[in-house]
Design a protein around this nucleic acid. Sequence first.
DNA 1: AAAAAGATGCAACTTGGTTGCAAAGTTCTT
DNA 2: AAGAACTTTGCAACCAAGTTGCATCTTTTT
Lengths: 146, 146
Amino acid sequence: MKALSVTEKLQQKDVKPTANRILVYETMAKLGCPLSISDIEDNLLSIDKSSIFRVITLFVQHDVVHAIEDGSGSLKYEICHEDLLHALGGHVHFYCEKCHHTFCLEGVDIPLVQIPEGFESKSVNYMIKGICPSCCKKNEIGNNLA
Amino acid sequence: MKALSVTEKLQQKDVKPTANRILVYETMAKLGCPLSISDIEDNLLSIDKSSIFRVITLFVQHDVVHAIEDGSGSLKYEICHEDLLHALGGHVHFYCEKCHHTFCLEGVDIPLVQIPEGFESKSVNYMIKGICPSCCKKNEIGNNLA
DNA sequence: AAAAAGATGCAACTTGGTTGCAAAGTTCTT
DNA sequence: AAGAACTTTGCAACCAAGTTGCATCTTTTT
Ligand SMILES: [Mn+2]
Ligand SMILES: [Mn+2]
Ligand SMILES: [Zn+2]
Ligand SMILES: [Zn+2]
């Protein structure tokens, strides 16, 4: 099975591949990590904020991307990879409180829990906050110099 | 060991118990579930938004309350109960997409995961989204009528 | 080619959160 | 007890992210 082009990936999800949509998708794919609307805005000066918003909204509806909630205040979006069952479950995310970057811990699956009778679960979000490797390192160096 | 008064609970955390702080604490205790600043505002018309904000900020710094991130857009706060080790771990939360209410699943502990080398974990947030029991029920009734 | 439907940019608006500042209240000194 | 020093509070102003209305431009349909 060969790799699909961006256009094909969008069509596969019933999203008409307009110029803006392709640009947004490509930007997200290129950067690889979960991005906020403003993050995308900063990387796509040509497109208006509202248009990016509408593209993302459409992408979410059509399951092209999904939203994740790190604690940063703004929603982050990432491309849905179907490889693994992403519906319920998915992987753990990590938010660095120092550099404000959100990481996908692709290898770390979310452990599911038993919830009380009556609750109907639609999605799960497992978020760890702390310091990322590169910021940990910087910190050590800083301490040594001090 | 006897139950502490609100005043004592605040003093225990090095927070001077002013009128506003006691009111905010009592409101949060009374409602029991995680609340946003605006939620508190709606229940405490007498106090200004900015004052509530400052009280909550202080509470967070002094570990009187802690923030949790449901996907609602606004941060929710809840009183820290020391009963269980709340630092790392804590319990799972549930956000109802219908009534926009956030529930503490007190009985359901967050299962911890092994994170990759180099990441330093400070806190964990496990959030389930879906439909709460009371909204599930309403839905069934609605369907039956239709 | 004309009409209809869809996508886009711009500006305006909403909301949650945050800050500056002066007034009111507390605590400390004398 | 009186005044100085510090803290808390309310008000208004501000800010950023998200969201919407509307006119314009583009694409699709007839
Ligand atoms: Mn991810
Ligand atoms: Mn809770
Ligand atoms: Zn970092
Ligand atoms: Zn509900």
